[in-house]
Structure formats: structure tokens, C-alpha cells
């Protein structure tokens, strides 16, 4: 079991949510439509991030079985928003693949009038170190 507090802090920074606010009621996992497909369930994402065990989550298929339906986020009574943690770990995994997939110099060529600015910001977040 590897504990990596840097990864924990990155996930917390990305979500902007303190995982300690979770009171472990399990409503997120009760509401999850992909529960049976996921090795780690929404409430476990919170606990494992809090414990610094982000590597286990990053290695799990659960990251891609989350439908991002946001039901857990919607129903959490403490505002912990597990879906954001899944997304943050997913981002961490994407960034890990090394290298910049998107350089600022490449942007002007891609631009067209229909491209929303949000998409560029979001692409940078995911594909650039």
C-alpha cells in the first residue's frame, strides 16, 4: 500500500473539497448506477484520497467505469461531491502519461470561431503539464 501525500494534495487542490467533510454515510454509493462495475465505489474514492492511497485508484478500472452522471455529487448531504474526486484522479492519471500533449504554440493553428474558450482551458488542464 503506497501512500503519496503529494498526489492526495493535488487531488484536493483540483476538487477544492476537503475530503474530511465526508461523514461516511454511503449515500453516494447507494445512489451510484455503476456500483457493480466499480472495484472502488464512490465513498471509497473519498476515503482512499484522504488516506493518500491515490495510486490504487489510478491503477483501477473504476476510473473509467464512472459514468460521471453526478448523482453522487447531487445527493451527498455534506457537499463532498465524489464525482469530482473521480474526475480529479482521472486527470492525475492523464497527466501522468508524460509529456505535453498540448503546447501553447500549437493553439493559434487550432483556433476557429466556433471553438469555445472553455474547451482550450479544459484541454490545457488535461493534456498539458
Amino acid at each position: 500500500m503506497k501512500i503519496d501525500m503529494n498526489k492526495r494534495d493535488s487531488v484536493i487542490r483540483m476538487t477544492g473539497i476537503n475530503p474530511r467533510t465526508c461523514m461516511k454515510c454511503g449515500k453516494c454509493s447507494a445512489t451510484c448506477p455503476s456500483f457493480d462495475e466499480m472495484e472502488y465505489h464512490p465513498h471509497q474514492f473519498i476515503s482512499l484520497v484522504e488516506a493518500g492511497r491515490v495510486d490504487e485508484l489510478m491503477a483501477s478500472e473504476s476510473l473509467y467505469n464512472c459514468l460521471a452522471c453526478m448523482a453522487c455529487l447531487e445527493r451527498c448531504p455534506r457537499g463532498v461531491e465524489p464525482a469530482k474526486f473521480v474526475e480529479a484522479v482521472r486527470n492525475l492519471k492523464l497527466r501522468e502519461h508524460g509529456g505535453n500533449h498540448l503546447a501553447p504554440e500549437a493553439i493559434p493553428e487550432m483556433l476557429d470561431a466556433d471553438l469555445p474558450q472553455q474547451a482550450i482551458v479544459s484541454a490545457f488542464r488535461k493534456y498539458s503539464k
Binding site: K24, C25, G26, K27, S29, A30, T31, C32, H43
Partner: peptide, 22 residues
């Protein structure tokens, strides 16, 4: 130990309760 996430009425009049057993 766990919370109910969803209660959905079914056509036959029963209630489908989806919950966590943590």
C-alpha cells in the same frame, strides 16, 4: 450501516429502494 440513495415507485405499487450496505 449505510444510506438510502434512491426510492423509486414501481408500476406494481412497490417501492424500489437502492441503498448502501457499507
Amino acid at each position: 450501516k449505510g444510506m438510502v440513495g434512491k426510492v423509486a415507485p414501481r408500476a406494481d405499487g412497490t417501492l424500489h429502494v437502492q441503498a448502501s450496505d457499507l
